[in-house]
Design a binder for these strands. Sequence first.
DNA 1: ATGACGATTTACT
DNA 2: GTAAATCGTCATA
Length: 205
Amino acid sequence: MRGASRTSERLGRRFFRRDAESLAIALLGQVLVRVLESGEVMAGRIVETEAYLGVIDRAAHTFGGRRTARNESMYLDAGHAYVYFTYGMHYCVNITADAAEVPTACLIRALEPIEGVELMRERRGGRADGELCSGPAKLTQAMNIDRSLDGIDLVSDPRLYLRRGRLAGNEEIIRSKRIGVGYAKDWADKMLRFYVRGNPHVSRK
DNA sequence: ATGACGATTTACT
DNA sequence: GTAAATCGTCATA
């Protein structure tokens, strides 16, 4: 099937092939879909993202061209998952931008749960709706995303992908400084975080 | 081999 | 508001 109108359109390579800042904005309103081994499905609308601009970006794991076993998937073509482990207990998921060998990506910081909400709640210890996916490590816990999904192709992998969605007409995108990158000196203040104004699932006011 | 440090969350004062 | 939890990763030696 090909064409613009389909009720459940999976996003293809062309959607991801742009710079990280543009992609971070374009991702707002798209739907992240997780399919478990059991066949159970969870999905959430992306309402908060951050752009990481690669070798020039002091806040990025690939600053200065650093390339290690951990961040290797940031060097993959646009539309792949970069999942990293941090603080000894949390996973965060990014989507690669640009092209192969250009290590830029967008961190998914918050989702508005729309499918499989009870499954998410189980994984999140029975917390209230607003606490299920309102943070980068909360959403990975809710959706059972860990390093086993690092490096997978979101264009073709059955376990994780993006479905076309959109922002409502009255929804507005706000730009701010990124969270938790105080160590990045001059790059700490860059306005590379984007979120839907007033959405209750955004990680912070 | 070692030590310092997180692209965070949660609980507590 | 402050602090603990908790360990893989990376730079340094």
